[in-house]
Simulated assay, not measured.
Amino acid sequence: MVHPYAVAGFLVAVLPLIATPGASLALLVQHVTDSGRGQALPVILGTVTGLYIHATLAIAGLSALVMHSSLAFTAVKLIGAVYLIGLGIWSWRSAPPNAAPVPQWQRLPKHAESVYAQALLANVLNPKAAAIYLTLVPQFIAPRQSFGGQILILATAHALLIALWLAVWTLLVRCASRTLQRPRFKRTAARTTAVVLIALGIRSAAT
């Protein structure tokens, strides 16, 4: 069992990383802006699932293998970079025109499964997310207690915090609902998201 102080310390340590704009927030803003707050849930679930995958890999030692093998780490990093850049290009190309809004009946529906998969892959293919569970998490666990259980508790706390953070952003985005419905704003939001994703991909490949 993780001491409550250890959980609190971990959350304080991880909060700046959560607050730093990343792929999950970029996807959230784009999908909520384009299709409504209902699209926030699959983004949050995909991100949270990715965290649990990293936690599971850390428990199994697979992430440690990747982090200690420069070739494997580089491969994961480049795959993630290519995915983010590709997702950014897709977001740019899918930006709506500045003309009048497209009628609802002409819009292609966005399936929750697709949005979930985007958020999941964006998190799973981020080696820095894996690094949290290999470098930061060990600082807050007791060596004489269940290693896996402690990691899962910290992962759950991490998941709840990032879910809350994305939920707050969903409310902030929806508060400007009238502005969000303007085609010019949707186009700007989509292209801003595209630039953020491409920049994250380039940064991931270069570091």
Rank of each mutant, 00 (worst) to 15 (best):
residue 162 I to K: 08
residue 196 V to A: 12
residue 18 I to E: 07
residue 77 K to M: 11
residue 17 L to K: 11
residue 6 A to L: 04
residue 34 D to H: 14
residue 95 A to Y: 11
residue 121 L to I: 08
residue 50 G to K: 06
residue 193 T to Y: 00
residue 131 A to P: 00
residue 206 A to M: 12
residue 108 L to G: 14
residue 46 G to W: 02
residue 9 G to I: 02
residue 69 S to D: 03
residue 172 L to W: 00
residue 31 H to S: 11
residue 119 A to H: 00
residue 32 V to R: 01
residue 193 T to L: 02
residue 13 A to P: 05
residue 112 A to I: 08
residue 201 G to D: 04
residue 68 H to K: 14
residue 53 I to D: 08
residue 77 K to N: 08
residue 130 A to T: 06
residue 164 L to R: 08
residue 148 G to A: 15
residue 37 R to H: 03
residue 147 F to V: 15
residue 51 L to R: 09
residue 35 S to H: 06
residue 63 S to R: 04
residue 123 N to P: 06
residue 32 V to Y: 01
residue 97 P to E: 15
residue 75 A to V: 14
residue 64 A to K: 12
residue 151 I to P: 08
residue 201 G to W: 00
residue 59 I to D: 11
residue 16 P to T: 04
residue 161 L to V: 06
residue 141 I to Y: 02
residue 206 A to D: 08
residue 125 L to I: 11
residue 131 A to S: 05
residue 2 V to M: 03
residue 10 F to G: 11
residue 12 V to I: 12
residue 193 T to F: 02
residue 102 V to E: 12
residue 116 Y to D: 02
residue 77 K to C: 09
residue 143 P to W: 06
residue 72 A to T: 08
residue 112 A to W: 07
residue 63 S to C: 13
residue 149 G to L: 10
residue 162 I to N: 12
residue 88 G to I: 03
residue 97 P to G: 15
residue 206 A to E: 08
residue 206 A to Y: 10
residue 115 V to I: 10
residue 3 H to I: 11
residue 90 W to K: 15
residue 106 Q to H: 05
residue 9 G to N: 02
residue 9 G to W: 02
residue 155 A to S: 07
residue 24 S to P: 05
residue 31 H to N: 12
residue 149 G to R: 03
residue 3 H to S: 11
residue 80 G to R: 00
residue 187 R to K: 13
residue 165 W to M: 15
residue 101 P to V: 11
residue 103 P to I: 06
residue 10 F to W: 00
residue 120 L to K: 09
residue 206 A to W: 05
residue 146 S to R: 06
residue 56 T to A: 15
residue 83 Y to Q: 09
residue 70 S to A: 14
residue 31 H to D: 07
residue 130 A to Q: 01
residue 56 T to G: 15
residue 113 E to G: 14
residue 65 L to P: 04
residue 18 I to T: 06
residue 134 L to F: 07
residue 135 T to K: 10
residue 68 H to Y: 07
residue 71 L to D: 07
residue 47 T to G: 10
residue 69 S to W: 03
residue 83 Y to M: 07
residue 91 S to A: 15
residue 3 H to L: 12
residue 85 I to W: 08
residue 188 T to F: 10
residue 45 L to Q: 04
residue 127 P to Y: 00
residue 160 L to A: 12
residue 176 A to P: 01
residue 142 A to P: 03
residue 94 S to P: 10
residue 176 A to I: 05
residue 40 A to S: 05
